[in-house]
Every structure is written in structure tokens, then in C-alpha cells.
Write a protein that binds this DNA or RNA. Structure first.
Lengths: 324, 324
DNA sequence: CATCGACATAAGCGAAGGGTTATGAGGCCA
DNA sequence: TGGCCTCATAACCCTTCGCTTATGTCGATG
């Protein structure tokens, strides 16, 4: 039983396919088969069996899969900890959902850098799903934004830190906004809906709301919600915007270029969560950040519209070197 | 970085000696050196340096040592879980201090077997120190009896479940017991002190008490406290006996063949603790047993003097196959 | 100064590990 | 029935692991 074999098995178990795992790992299919065969021989368990539709894990396979991620993750963590031990530049790997990354990450990490000793944390922000697994295999130290799927949250420490609202907005000049009266959803679905990267992520409240719709509008994904708001302001469609972000632009009397559309079941309230591994398994900086985001100071920073150093995009992932 | 290398490094880190680790692992010293050299090259850290007196870990070495036990322990746990998955005979490995094993384990596990589904747990009881490490490396699922050393208890879940008292007793016919008045410690130290296996374990309250004595008596370790009590009853010396165990034999009026010696700072009160890994890391049966020992039912079983299936000694370790 | 103890290094060896290409074995589907 | 997809196996390669014995280095100690 080697770490490499466990890594391979974990991939097979997750993808439910030997061929798929081989592709994901960038090796030939027999290479994966061989690793599995080796584990099978050593552990005396088939681990999984072939079925008409792909493969299914045996009880032993499930038991191994439950540990495999953790073991390889710990090995990675050990490697990193050794590399960073002694030097003061710890690295904190943050997994953030797109909305948080765009609207709050810059200010939060700016502030966090003043909260903790400077020169102590390096933050990498990346958007992804399957939060629980990524935390468990130590690919990230903390997840900010969406809540992990209920079923997968065992062994995790979840803390809500911000309540956001999403409201449907359109340009003040948009036909739909003409009447001050409520608009029916059906009419709205004829207009294009703008969204940030990722569209409506299913783990978010708005994602679930959207998933419940019977008919779907045309969705236009832009590279940021800021761009989406701009498009909406130009009269090109509607969007579910973050309430506190567009509040200054909402028309009250005669100011503001956007109007809120009063549709049933809006505004949509959701929570941003800070998720880490539980108890002694989360690295200390992650716990510190988790505590920090729940402070009044952090909340104030999120809602404030004042300047923040944004996140710079770099090679597909956001990377903010706070004290490089 | 292989599991074998981590195992080797963990041993070196724990023993503080390459040669010692080689002996412990049953291999030659260069074999250990080579494993370390491999880790050093891969991780880019010396891990430890030579000092006049043995070796000392570098910061990186400490970081690795903190993970190594856990990783190899998890790998072992995975191996076991796969082996036992599907079949109903889980195995619960219990680490018990000698006193608990002798006086309570039999009845506790008897009862526990009725509490949980029969045919579901197999218990191995073994006496040892360094509780925290043994739990962390998954050599045992739960420790019953002494409390782990304070410093090492991070990441552990400690629950006290029984308050015991130790009293100094002697035969009713012993010269020291002649006067009903308090006896001075100095006089007692001239008599031989009987004890169970292990003598006075330093992690227990009586061990600490004993460690504070300025002069030490002659200590006679017998294979069980029951034997020790018998020797004391025969007038051969004194002992620190468990209060609830000898209570029926203590002379009140004219019954009983033992008398309590009223010495300052006695009786000594101590706690038995049930210790597991915290949060999601402890196997479920271990948590169940941990909860069980705190029940009134379990406490009653410990103090009751009625029959229990004792633990059978087998090859140096206690082994009780409850439902073999 | 010589020696001894403890770690590091060298050389060498068998056994796995991890990879490839080629081929076999089964179940699904047109 | 004949592809076709997927997993399993065979044959073969090279590298690494893990172990040995022999020797080197270095500091403490008599």
C-alpha cells in the first residue's frame, strides 16, 4: 500500500471509473488497473466490482475510500508544513466561491493582513465546487462562500459569517421597469439574465432558487458580476444582483440607474460560510481567518463600498500576494 | 516520501536516535539512515541535526514528526477497516491501565456487550504508557484509566468516568495497625509496600503522590493487586489499595481482616478517564464505549463486587474475547 | 593520542513500484 | 451478430525502495 496507490484509488472511487481516473491522472488505463490490483492483493478485497453501469464499491472499498483522501491529503500537508516550517511565511490556501471572491475577498484579505502579523500569510483564491472533498484532502485550508453539501459536512467546522441578499434588478429605462407594480416571473424569463462566472452555482441559495424554476431564461455568463451589472444598466437584461453591492445605484426618487423588480420570493437571502476541517485538523491560520470573518470589522468591510485592492487574475486562478 | 519512510522517521523522532530506531525496527542502522536521507532529499530539509547529546529536530523535522504518526496510523486504520468492513465483527482496541484492567474491565466489557449489539466488538486490553501517541497512531481506539499527559492531550477527547480512592491498608494483625491513632509516614516506609503490576504508574494520582515522597520504601510488585491485597492481609506489609475494592474487608467493629492506616494526604483521590481521538477521528464503537462508561450503569458495575468474567491473560497481554 | 559511539555514505542486490503497448473478457447496443 | 466501451491481464521496461556489509567522519571521553 503506497501513497501513490491510495491516490489512484481515491480518484477511481471519486470518479467511479478506471478509465476516467487514468485520464484525470494522465496515465494509461492499465497503470491504474495495476495500482488497484496491487491494493486488491494486499488488502484481500476486490474494493469494487464491475456492474452494467460503471463500477460499485464493495464495503471494503468504501472503507478504503473513506481514508484514502485523508491519508494523501495529510501527506501533502506534511510536505508543505516542512517546507514552510521555520520561515515566517505560512501559506493559507483559500477556496472561495466566485461571488465572495469578487465582492469581498479583496477587502477581507486586506484587513486580515493587518489583523494578523504581516509577512505571515499568502492567499490563493480559487473558485470550485466539492468543497468538502477539497478541504479533506488538504487542497485548501478554508472555504469561504457557499456552504458544503449537507451530506458531506461531517468532520467539518461550518461558521456562517455574512447574510447577503440577492435582488432582481434591471435598468431604470428597461421596459420591464416601467410600471412600479410587481412583475410576473413569466415576463422576466423572456429577457436575458446576466450572471457572473459560474452562473448560478447549485450550492448557493440563489442556485437552489434558480433550480426550482419551471422554465429557464437565457443565461449570459460574464467574467464578473460587475460586468453583469454594467450590462444590465445598459438595458440589456436583468440579473440577480447582490443587494448591498447595487444598493447605491437603485432608484429611490430620481437618482440611481437601476430599479429593483419586485418578484415573488425575492429578495433571496443566503449565507456565506467559512468552512474548515474540525478540531485539531485545521491549520491554525485557517482558524484565525475563520474567527476573523465573523467579526464586526470584517462584516463592515464586506458591505462598505470603499476602495479595496482587488484580486488580480493570474493563470486561471485568483492570486493575491498580500505581502509579497 | 513513502509510508515506510514516514514510519521510520516517526520512530527516529520519538526515540531521538537513529541507532535506537534501527534496533526497534529490527533493521540495520544504515537502513534507517537511508530512509532519512531519502526524506531529506525530497523535502529539502535536514529534519534533524547531530548534537553532542544525540539529535535534535529542525523546525521542519518537528513539522514532519507531527504528521508522520498520524499518516501511518491512518494507513493502518484503513487496512483494518477494509479487513473488517462488511463483516459484523468490528474490533475495538482498548488500552487500559493495569488497575482498571484488573478491577473494572471484566464487568465493564461484560455489560458493554449487552449494551451494544452482540457479535459486534472484540476487545483487546493491554497496559502501557504514552497514551496520546498510541491513540494518535491508531494502535488503540480508546484508552481507559490514567489520563494522558497534559501536554500531549491536544486533539484528544478526554472524559472522566470514575472517581476512585486509594487508602493505605495493612493487616488487622500488623504491628503498625495496633494503635487506632494516625501513623507517621516515616514508620510506614520501613515496611514493604505491595503493588500490582507496574507499581506506581507516574500518570496516575497515586503515582504523583508517590513521586513526591522524599524517602522511598521497598516496593514489591506482584502480578495483580488482588495478590498484593492477599500478601498484605497475610501481614507482610502495606499497600495503597482501591477503596471500593477493599471496603468489605476493612475492620469496622470486629469483622474484616484489614485496617485502614490514617496517614496524612490519604485517601488519595484520582479519576479514571476515557480518552479517544476527537471529533470525527475516533471510530464510532470507541465513542460508544466512551459514552457508555459514563453511565450510572457502568459506574455501578465498577463498584459492585459481584461476579465478573475476569480478563484472561494471554501472551503478555490481556485478551477478552467477549463473543468469540 | 587513541578509541569508541553514533550518524553518514558507498556499493551492491533483490523485489516492488509504476509506467508502457498489446491483448483478452464481458456486457451493452445498433 | 458485430462493433464498442470498459476493466483485467500479460509481457516488458526502467526506476526506486529497502535492505545488506563495509567504510568514513566527527565529537566526546578515557
Amino acid at each position: 500500500m503506497t501513497l501513490s496507490q491510495l491516490r489512484t484509488f481515491a480518484r477511481v472511487a471519486k470518479l467511479g471509473s478506471v478509465t476516467g481516473a487514468a485520464r484525470a491522472l494522465g496515465v494509461s488505463e492499465p497503470a491504474v488497473s495495476a495500482a488497484i490490483a496491487s491494493l486488491r492483493a494486499e488488502l484481500g478485497d476486490r474494493l469494487f466490482t464491475r456492474t452494467p453501469t460503471g463500477i460499485t464499491l464493495t464495503p471494503g472499498g468504501r472503507a478504503l475510500a473513506a481514508h484514502a483522501d485523508e491519508i494523501v491529503g495529510l501527506a501533502e500537508a506534511a510536505r508543505r508544513d516542512v517546507a514552510h516550517a521555520g520561515s515566517s511565511d505560512a501559506e493559507l490556501r483559500v477556496l472561495a466561491t466566485a461571488a465572495f471572491a469578487e465582492h469581498a475577498a479583496g477587502r477581507i484579505f486586506d484587513l486580515f493582513g493587518k489583523w494578523v502579523a504581516p509577512d505571515s500569510v499568502d492567499v490563493i483564491v480559487e473558485s470550485a465546487d466539492d468543497i468538502a472533498t477539497l478541504l479533506r484532502e488538504r487542497a485548501y485550508d478554508i472555504a469561504l462562500g457557499a456552504r458544503p453539501a449537507m451530506a458531506a459536512s461531517a468532520g467539518l467546522e461550518l461558521v456562517p459569517f455574512f447574510k447577503y441578499q440577492r435582488v432582481l434588478v434591471a435598468s431604470a429605462r428597461h421596459p420591464l421597469a416601467a410600471a412600479g407594480a410587481p412583475v410576473t416571473l413569466d415576463r422576466l424569463l423572456t429577457a436575458p439574465w446576466f450572471a457572473g462566472p459560474g452562473g448560478f452555482e447549485p450550492l448557493t441559495e440563489e442556485g437552489r432558487w434558480f433550480g426550482r424554476l419551471t422554465a429557464l431564461p437565457e443565461i449570459v455568463e460574464l467574467t464578473s458580476e460587475t460586468d453583469a451589472v454594467a450590462a444590465v444598466a445598459a438595458g440589456e437584461g436583468v440579473m440577480l444582483a447582490l443587494g448591498h453591492a447595487v444598493a447605491p445605484r437603485l432608484r429611490t426618487d430620481d437618482s440611481g440607474d437601476l430599479v429593483r423588480l419586485h418578484v415573488a420570493q425575492t429578495p433571496i437571502s443566503g449565507l456565506w460560510w467559512a468552512t474548515t476541517l474540525d478540531a485539531g485538523r485545521a491549520p491554525e491560520p485557517a482558524r484565525t481567518l475563520q474567527r476573523f470573518v465573523t467579526t464586526a470589522e470584517a462584516t463592515a468591510a464586506i458591505v462598505s463600498a470603499t476602495g479595496s485592492r482587488g484580486l488580480s487574475r493570474r493563470g486561471g486562478k485568483f492570486h493575491v500576494a498580500l505581502w509579497s
